[in-house]
């Protein structure tokens, strides 16, 4: 039995992706070069879909923050994640488009120990309107020294929320080896 997917598998995969309204999708290792070049491809795609430069900037911003969050998270926790059976290429980013909106969804495995705090922050972000998000962004920008990388993650989530035309949505699905699947989505 060969290890590559058969034509039947590819057809199934394609129709599953289409059903989920997936226009573009990245699955693989989140490394600087790849994050950057998939971002460039995303921009080209968006420029073909809309003439609204502001929308292109918004979607691209959300993509970069989500991708760099996954990248930093995986880098920081590679040993702990590996111990839970999660490989270095854990992560997916999916771009969908309907009418005049683009949805960006990110998914990756996170350690169970971190779910509580992350969930608390995400829930709180959902309660903030745009002026409150802006105020929080500025406040956090002031309190987090730029040399502190971890402090940047909170700002990344705020940026994602600020670009959204609707509140962010998220989900945690418990796994069985000390990790949970975390998905975050927003529409621009």
């Amino acid at each position: 039995m060969s290890s590559h997917p058969s034509a039947t598998t590819l057809i199934e995969l394609s129709s599953n992706l289409r059903r989920a309204n997936v226009q573009l999708c990245f699955l693989g290792p989140f490394t600087s070069g790849i994050v950057q070049h998939f971002g460039a491809a995303l921009r080209v795609y968006l420029q073909q879909q809309t003439s609204d430069e502001s929308e292109v900037t918004g979607v691209f911003s959300v993509y970069i923050e989500m991708a760099q969050n996954i990248q930093r998270y995986n880098d920081r926790n590679s040993a702990a994640l590996a111990a839970c059976g999660v490989g270095a290429s854990s992560g997916i980013i999916v771009i969908g488009r309907s009418e005049s909106r683009t949805s960006i969804v990110a998914g990756n495995w996170v350690l169970d120990a971190e779910v509580g705090e992350l969930e608390r922050r995400l829930k709180e972000l959902r309660t903030l309107d745009q002026p409150a998000l802006k105020a929080r962004f500025k406040q956090q920008l002031r309190s987090a020294p730029s040399a502190d990388e971890a402090a940047g993650a909170g700002l990344g989530l705020l940026t994602v929320a600020r670009h959204g035309s609707t509140p962010i949505e998220f989900e945690f699905m418990p796994g069985d080896r000390g990790v949970s699947y975390y998905s975050l989505s927003v529409e621009v």
Binding site: Q68, L141, R142, G152, L155, G156
Partner: peptide, 13 residues
């Protein structure tokens, strides 16, 4: 044209 949040922090500095 475009800045990520960690660049925004540096420009603030």
């Amino acid at each position: 044209v475009y800045m990520n949040t960690s660049s925004v922090r540096c420009v603030m500095d």
